[in-house]
Amino acid sequence: MKSLWLLMSMLGAAGAGAAQSPVPVKATLFHNYWSEEVPQAAAAYRVQRLETPGQVRLDSVFATASNRLLRVSRTLWPTTGSDTLTTTITTRWRANGALFVVHSELGSQWHGTYNCFDGAGRLKRTTVYERGRELSSQCYDETGTARPCTGAEYSEQMPTFPGGMNGMLAYLGRSIRYPAAALKTGKQGKVLVEFYVTETGDIRDIRLKQSVSAALDAEALRVIEAMPRWEPGVQDGERVPVRYTVPITFAIR
């Protein structure tokens, strides 16, 4: 109930104090991690699209299967005038329900204040950005006392395959089966496969980044789809979905 109240407060704040008028709801859309529309069962998040004269508003809601909020973003997209950059305000929560991050973006760049909170929901870092450029940063201890920031405050960890890179190479070596059709025609090359490693370590939204042939592409996708669960990526101490690319080279020896 608390999360629902937070969501309603955030999404309703923009209209506070203004004359209320009906806002036409165009659609509720379901997206994958690539922001492509997909059926609800395959969605990573849902988007409520609303239109007013000169502007489109997208309210994106990421949630768990139990409907606990993970992230809420409001994006405003001007449809008239010369400045059509989107502005986005995002709030994220940790797995324990505590506030995690509140930040804003202009276009695809951080712009404005980025606030990060610790596992108990206490402010631990405030950074000010201007179109992606960091202007200032201030960190805080558990008592709220200001202190200098260290490199660890910005720690990021990429997702890892079980056993690391050696484990992945071993998995690919024993899993790949050279397609007979490709052997017959002498087809070789490097297939690049992109996917997201979710905050739970699952592989989602697999796609080809570089194709070689139908047979080799299909085998590369099969092997990626069959991968075991990864160790998720981490940002600011919280597991996050991360885009990852794996090259798979097919060579006839």
Rank of each mutant, 00 (worst) to 15 (best):
T198N: 03
W5P: 01
V242S: 11
L183Y: 14
L99K: 09
D202F: 00
A220D: 01
E199H: 09
D118P: 05
L76T: 00
G164A: 03
S104Y: 09
A226F: 13
R239T: 11
Q138A: 10
R229I: 00
V212L: 10
V128A: 03
A16C: 06
E142Y: 01
G233K: 12
P78R: 00
K2L: 11
K209Y: 09
A65Q: 14
G17E: 12
D236L: 06
G201N: 06
I206Q: 11
R57A: 07
V38C: 15
K190P: 09
R243Y: 09
Y140D: 01
V128I: 07
H103K: 09
L69W: 14
A98C: 05
R253I: 02
T198L: 03
A27T: 05
S35Q: 14
A170C: 07
K124E: 11
M168L: 12
Q138H: 15
D202W: 00
Q188N: 11
V128K: 02
Y45T: 00
N115D: 12
W93N: 12
T113W: 07
T88M: 09
K209T: 09
L58K: 14
S60H: 10
S155Q: 10
A226L: 12
G121P: 15
H111P: 02
F62V: 10
L11C: 02
T160W: 03
T79A: 00
Y244M: 07
C149F: 11
F161V: 01
Q40P: 13
L85I: 07
R68G: 00
R68N: 01
L6E: 15
M10L: 09
I248V: 13
T249W: 05
A182D: 08
M158F: 02
T126S: 12
L6C: 13
P53M: 00
L123T: 04
F117K: 11
W230M: 00
S136Y: 05
A13C: 08
P232D: 01
E199C: 01
T80D: 00
M10Y: 04
S155R: 12
G163K: 13
P53D: 00
L183N: 05
L183A: 10
F250H: 09
V23P: 02
T200I: 03
S3A: 12
W34D: 08
W77T: 03
T126I: 12
W77G: 01
V240C: 13
E37P: 14
L7I: 10
C139L: 08
R204L: 02
L50A: 02
V223M: 11
T91P: 07
A63F: 11
E238V: 12
L216Y: 09
P24E: 14
T249L: 04
V25G: 04
G81V: 04
V47R: 13
L99P: 01
A181T: 05
A41D: 15
R239A: 08
R57Y: 07
S73T: 12
A182V: 09
R92D: 10
Q138F: 05
P148L: 06
Q55W: 00
G201R: 04
G121L: 06
V246Q: 11
L216I: 14
L192H: 06
Q20N: 15
L192F: 14
S136W: 12
K187M: 13
N32A: 12
S211P: 07
T88L: 15
Y178I: 04
V47T: 15
Y45S: 03
L172S: 02
L135E: 07
C149R: 09
E142I: 00
F250L: 10
V101N: 08
E238F: 08
V56P: 06
R68F: 02
V128R: 02
H103N: 12
